[in-house]
């Protein structure tokens, strides 16, 4: 039973007075909750912003890492390593041919492990395994054919008639073969009427012959390239006058300058190499033929064309391994092959 006070019949006397403070406290409580809500909302927003920042940064970082490894994943790094190895092996081939008269094969066998170790050490820093080894029967023999001058002098590109002593200007140097590293240093030449002509005549196919015409005319040393009698591109000339000029066929340089017309040279294979107007031009040359060539005396034979055994090419087993790419191939190295 509920006890009632004296005024138990109606509302308590101070009920109105009591309700007002209660309503104000509730209002205060609600208003206090709004303030806390505001702070909590701001805090949540701040945490969200900072989290978003971290997510975005992680994404950018991942993207950067992915881009930096793209080459390796797609095999670009393997191709780069392969071509660098091809260049290094080609340089070794050129060196042993130049520095060793007879034991060039053994010199190459001795040099390749040192070369391979150097390449392997550098690539290993970036987590790649690169190796180059010799397979069985790796060597392609060839013949170095050259005309070198004695004491800096030079001789005609012509052949001398042994009985009459006269010069035969047009001659075939080699037949039905392929050459690499063909380089000419022309020290003396007539004008454009009788240029020194280097010919590449297809031996078996019906392709047009290519001719390189070199002369020292009114505008200095000039190279013109012809295919089937038609001139290819414009003439090439070194930028300044000089006493002699170097013609390097594989990299297409004339007087150290790139010659676009020369880069078009494509005689196919096999072909004959001929000289024309050699009785009016002097100089030196050297090239390595793919096959055994006969008809010239052994070197040294200053002032005359001579020949020596040489390495024409070499096959090297190339191996590349990374976390994503395994690649093995055989490099056929014939630097400067035309």
């Amino acid at each position: 039973m509920v006890a009632r006070g004296p005024a138990g019949r109606g509302r308590p006397r101070d009920s109105r007075r009591q309700s007002r403070p209660q309503g104000t406290r509730g209002q205060f409580r609600l208003q206090g909750s709004r303030g806390q809500l505001l702070l909590a909302g701001a805090f949540v927003l701040a945490v969200g912003l900072i989290s978003l920042t971290f997510v975005l940064n992680a994404s950018v970082h991942t993207n950067t890492l992915a881009e930096s490894e793209t080459g390796a994943v797609r095999g670009g790094d393997a191709v780069t390593a392969r071509e660098a190895a091809r260049g290094d092996v080609g340089a070794l081939l050129g060196t042993v041919n130049r520095e060793h008269d007879s034991d060039y094969v053994q010199a190459f066998r001795d040099g390749l492990p040192a070369l391979a170790r150097g390449i392997r050490d550098h690539r290993a820093k970036r987590g790649r395994l690169v190796n180059a080894t010799l397979p069985s029967s790796p060597f392609t023999n060839g013949t170095l054919v050259k005309q070198t001058a004695e004491n800096g002098s030079s001789d005609y590109f012509a052949k001398r008639n042994t009985s009459t002593g006269s010069l035969i200007g047009n001659r075939t140097i080699m037949e039905g073969t392929r050459v690499r590293n063909a380089t000419f240093v022309i020290t003396n030449s007539s004008g454009s009427d009788s240029p020194f002509v280097i010919g590449f005549d297809p031996a078996t196919s019906s392709r047009d012959a290519w001719e390189l015409h070199v002369y020292n005319g009114s505008r200095g040393w000039t190279l013109e390239v012809f295919n089937g009698g038609s001139r290819v591109g414009g003439p090439c000339r070194p930028p300044e006058a000089r006493d002699s000029v170097e013609l390097n066929i594989a990299p297409a340089t004339f007087g150290s300058d790139y010659c676009h017309a020369l880069s078009q040279l494509n005689p196919g294979s096999p072909y004959n190499v001929t000289f024309g107007n050699g009785n009016e031009s002097k100089g030196r040359f050297w090239m390595v033929a793919k096959d055994d060539i006969t008809g010239f005396p052994s070197c040294p034979s200053p002032g005359n064309i001579c020949q020596d055994d040489a390495l024409y090419g070499v096959d090297v087993a190339f191996e590349y391994r990374s976390s994503t790419v395994d690649y093995e191939t055989t490099l056929v190295v014939t630097p400067g092959e035309i």
């Binding site: 303030g35 806390q36 505001l38 702070l39 909302g41 701001a42 805090f43 927003l45 701040a46 945490v47 912003l49 900072i50 978003l52 920042t53 971290f54 975005l56 940064n57 950018v60 970082h61």
Partner: peptide, 21 residues
């Protein structure tokens, strides 16, 4: 509360802008 909330949001924004690469 309003000032504190505004400061928190502004600080977070500044931090985010400074951190994004």
């Amino acid at each position: 509360e309003g000032v504190l909330a505004a400061v928190i949001v502004i600080v977070a924004l500044v931090f985010a802008l400074q951190t994004v690469v």
